[in-house]
Design a protein around this nucleic acid. Structure first.
Lengths: 162, 162
DNA sequence: GGTGATTCGATGACATGTCAACGATCCGGG
DNA sequence: CCCGGATCGTTGACATGTCATCGAATCACC
């Protein structure tokens, strides 16, 4: 670890570019989104995942896993969204600990109103700037990295090495 | 805007992969970093940019611009880092409003201790998983998107269309 | 050289995210 | 059954980020 293989010029260019794109794209998409729909990106993601589920309902645990959020974060965020009338919580029939998150009509309206504009922004600022080969490459490379990362031990909290 | 061109299968795969990678990579890198250096990613970025500057000093404004952070955010963050002895603030000789941020010896030690491990993590979880062609493509595509985004009006607050 | 608009950085109020608890419930082995 | 350990979701304390605003200083322009 004391003589690390440094990044060569191309690797450095890719890494810096990635981080910069990440930041700028986020700022732009978030700005567009809130400006013309009043939703934040986290709001959008929650509503989007719910709307893709049967009947617009998901168990909190499953939604959190799908979004790669902690349950705590999701619970806090749902409380805020619930106060705005975008989602509701329902009892889970087969597990009394559980909680079902469901889209309200207002929530469905909100995501359906926001989606076209958001999609257009994603196209305008990313997808339509890429060649078909780059889109293919981006799909391949990101999935490879995701598989690599997902294959690790999920919670090595702070144990020696059981 | 009412009949948006939806994402086709490949575009969707790239877009979802990107977002998922983004999240997982962030979690992993942040976890590794704090675990073996006690620094957060924002800490690391601040120290890294400072250490790449002559004498480890930068004007707050310039550091903020370089990092794509708001001055407010940077100011708050520096206050915390200053309390931990990683950076100091100095007067700006040629502009009395200004503030110069400088690496302390402890700050330089911290970044130099953290860098090899962080670099190794970046390699392990991203760079070394990619083919040379993918690295090249990632560099090209991210820079194109960055140029596109940077070329926009920086602050179209909420004006009609001057 | 005045002077009005702008830039700079700090600050306080608030929104959001993280982390470590907790009570409740579920599960599996006797 | 029942009991110990796991999971589920919530909560409160705290860390971090955003936004509007401020006072000081600078700049542009005449």
């Amino acid at each position: 670890m004391d003589a690390p293989r440094w990044l060569d010029e191309r690797e450095d260019r890719a890494w810096r570019g990635y981080r910069r794109m990440r930041r700028l794209l986020d700022l732009e998409l978030a700005r567009d989104l809130t400006q013309d729909s009043g939703l934040s990106e986290p709001d959008y993601d929650v509503l989007s995942d719910l709307s893709e589920s049967p009947e617009g309902r998901l168990r909190l645990r499953d939604l959190a896993d799908r979004m790669l959020w902690s349950r705590s974060r999701l619970s806090h965020h749902l409380t805020r969204m619930q106060q705005r009338g975008l989602v509701t919580r329902q009892e889970c029939p087969d597990d009394a600990r559980g909680s079902i998150v469901a889209l309200t009509p207002a929530g469905r309206e909100a995501i359906e109103a926001a989606a076209p504009g958001h999609l257009a922004a994603v196209r305008r600022n990313l997808i339509d700037l890429l060649t078909p080969a780059e889109i293919e490459a981006l799909g391949a490379l990101t999935h490879r990295v995701v598989d690599h990362l997902a294959g690790q031990q999920p919670r090595p909290r702070h144990e020696p090495a059981a």
